[in-house]
């Protein structure tokens, strides 16, 4: 994880790294090729993924994209794209700190402003996990699904 490598850099003040510190770095480097290929796959497919999620959500709840008699699908699509992009970065660097700091903490409070937000977000980020599994091989999904689940926990649960 890049953030761990950075922390290692600051922590190793006049000493060599311990075995467990080196193991963490090794694990990150071992998985990096897979992380990069998954990241690129998401980058290419993001529009397909988001549109498919929108279609599936509407099948489950046809009224979900209507808020105060207004079609909010463009806003939902924009937010989902942002979340997906930041999630992909979190996957690449194997660290969710920036995802939380830059998006989730903020979006969580903003979503609270809208009634029925938990149901909407829970459904959205649950279906996103289902849809994305169609595009990823199991090893890629194993790396990415925990990040997507974090989104659901932040935005879809109280």
């Amino acid at each position: 994880m890049l953030s761990s490598l950075y922390a290692l850099n600051t922590e190793l003040d006049g000493r060599y790294a311990t075995d467990s510190e080196l193991q963490t770095a090794d694990q990150f480097l071992d998985s990096y090729t897979l992380r990069l290929s998954t990241y690129r796959k998401i980058q290419v497919l993001e529009t397909h993924i988001v549109q498919q999620v929108q279609t599936r959500i509407r099948q489950v709840d046809p009224e979900i994209m209507v808020y105060d008699n207004r079609d909010v699908s463009a806003i939902c699509e924009r937010d989902m794209l942002y979340v997906l992009r930041y999630s992909a970065i979190a996957l690449l660097i194997n660290g969710t700190d920036l995802l939380e700091e830059r998006v989730l903490l903020w979006l969580q409070t903003i979503m609270r402003s809208f009634k029925d937000h938990q149901h909407r977000s829970d459904l959205t980020y649950r279906i996103l996990q289902e849809v994305i599994q169609q595009y990823l091989i199991p090893a890629e999904a194993a790396l990415f699904l925990p990040v997507l689940e974090l989104n659901r926990q932040f935005l879809g649960m109280s």
């Binding site: 903020w106 409070t109 903003i110 609270r112 402003s113 809208f114």
Partner: peptide, 12 residues
């Protein structure tokens, strides 16, 4: 604007 959204945005 939705009042709660407005207030959340003010406090950020």
């Amino acid at each position: 604007t939705n009042l709660l959204f407005l207030l959340e945005t003010w406090w950020w």
